[in-house]
Design a protein around this nucleic acid. Structure first.
Lengths: 127, 127
DNA sequence: TTCCATGCAAATCGTTTGCATAAAC
DNA sequence: GTTTATGCAAACGATTTGCATGGAA
């Protein structure tokens, strides 16, 4: 992220103001609404940079586009496997113990403990 | 999964005999090696059915093709975000407490507690 | 002989890339 | 004036789909 750009500024603002884990397409549409010439690639490119620099988080999805999240207080995500909705939740995963266990068993170092869990949400269950 | 087919039989066998979380493409190549006429769609279609019926597990990946896993003893996965390798590990997530917490906070019911964690593996760290 | 599964090719979806132009520094 | 970012369109990888054909019950 070397040079400033109006587009990047706007993309950051949109992610910051979103509380519903928008997709790249969602973000593109919002940015486009007050800057009609913006291109999808610019949005993708900037989201990529911002994730790379840990400025925002990417929530990889098993279906549909990946979601983006502005890091407020640390939290984990549950994803409904039926409708794809993403929910935030708070839970103490005893990170040290978990970290240690994983490191010992696999050699993998989990830096930020990005944990995603899958289940069925309430509205999907009641259909 | 209504009618038997030679291809499905073979696909199941390949997944059962794989201990390295193969992709659909991997499975396709192996099946193809002793049944050259098999088609990719048949592999995808059958893997889909088998996952749907909880006969095998799908590990959704953030990049590269999704992986498949024959359910032996229950375990969780860590995925290296650099090389994409998938590692198995065992950890007691105190499922009841975790389940309850998630249910209370989000309304999501986690049936099988599919948990995936991301980190950096040993060989990627040492590069 | 009806239904289901297959093989093929084309279509789809989310994302990335090459390239010429425009903006930042 | 030299980078770096943009916009466009085309390419991409993984997966899905439509459709005619072949195999299972």
């Amino acid at each position: 992220m070397k040079n400033y750009s109006r587009q990047r500024e706007e993309i950051i603002k949109v992610v910051k103001d979103s509380y519903n884990h928008p997709t790249a397409e969602d973000i593109y549409m919002i940015v486009k609404s007050n800057d009609p010439n913006v291109s999808r690639s610019t949005v993708y490119r900037n989201l990529g940079m911002l994730v790379e620099d840990n400025f925002i988080n990417k929530i990889p999805m098993q279906s549909g586009g990946d979601r983006y999240d502005y890091p407020r207080e640390p939290h984990s995500h549950v994803i409904c496997t039926k409708c794809g909705r993403v929910f935030d939740f708070l839970y103490d995963f005893e990170n040290n113990k978990l970290k240690e266990t994983i490191k010992k068993q696999t050699g993998v170092e989990i830096s930020d403990s990005r944990i995603s869990i899958q289940g069925i949400c309430d509205s999907c269950k009641n259909i």
